[in-house]
Deep mutational scan, measured.
Amino acid sequence: RLHIEVEGTELMKKLVEEAKRRNLNVRAKVENGKWIIEID
């Protein structure tokens, strides 16, 4: 499991799109103003 903290929506969208393209499980949520992304 990969755990990433990202500031900025554009970067988050790119990460999520790339993960979906590779058929990975992606969860994204906002915590303290940062995107928290978990990829399995």
Rank of each mutant, 00 (worst) to 15 (best):
R1W: 14
L2S: 06
L2D: 07
L2F: 09
H3K: 13
H3S: 11
H3N: 11
I4K: 05
I4N: 04
I4E: 05
I4T: 06
I4G: 04
I4A: 05
E5H: 09
E5K: 08
E5R: 07
V6E: 03
G8M: 14
G8I: 13
T9C: 15
T9V: 13
T9L: 14
T9H: 13
E10G: 07
E10V: 04
E10Q: 06
E10T: 04
E10H: 08
L11N: 12
M12T: 03
M12Q: 02
K13I: 13
K13R: 14
K13A: 09
K13G: 05
K13D: 05
K13L: 14
K13T: 10
K14F: 10
K14I: 13
L15P: 00
L15N: 00
L15D: 01
L15I: 15
L15Y: 07
V16G: 02
E17N: 09
E17F: 05
E17M: 08
E17P: 00
E17K: 08
E17Y: 05
E18W: 15
A19R: 00
A19K: 01
K20Y: 04
K20M: 14
R21A: 12
R21T: 08
R22P: 02
N23W: 03
L24K: 04
L24D: 02
L24N: 03
L24S: 03
V26E: 02
V26D: 01
V26R: 00
V26H: 00
R27E: 10
A28K: 02
A28Q: 04
K29D: 05
V30Y: 15
E31N: 06
E31H: 09
E31T: 04
E31D: 07
N32F: 02
N32H: 04
N32V: 00
G33R: 00
K34N: 07
K34F: 10
W35F: 07
I36W: 04
I36N: 00
I36Y: 07
I36H: 04
I36Q: 03
I37T: 02
I37R: 00
I37G: 01
I37D: 01
E38S: 08
E38Y: 10
I39E: 02
I39L: 07
I39F: 07
I39Q: 01
I39N: 00
D40S: 14
D40W: 15
